[in-house]
Amino acid sequence: MKLGIVIGVVWATKKVKEINGCRMYIVQPISTKGKKTDTPLVVADPQNIAASGDKVIYVTSSDATQAFESGFAPVNASIVELVDEIS
């Protein structure tokens, strides 16, 4: 699980049906201080919880498919949490 900030939205109408209705965002991995830590990546948002500019927690690799209710989706990264505050 990693911390990131949503910096962009990916619009795609034609998708495989396993990820229909799921938004795609571009997420910039950041440190807790808000500094860039890596290059941006595309992340799916299966629960539709994020929006542009939000700090989020995302999972990568095969865990990303578990974020979908069906557990069956061809994604490599998924948003799982919206961060309100880091204390």
Partner: peptide
């Protein structure tokens, strides 16, 4: 490897330093 979506547009809303 699989193609899962055809992209229409990408909107960048934020830029970080």
């Amino acid at each position: 490897a699989v193609i899962i979506a055809i992209i229409d547009d990408i909107q960048i809303t934020q830029t970080l330093k």
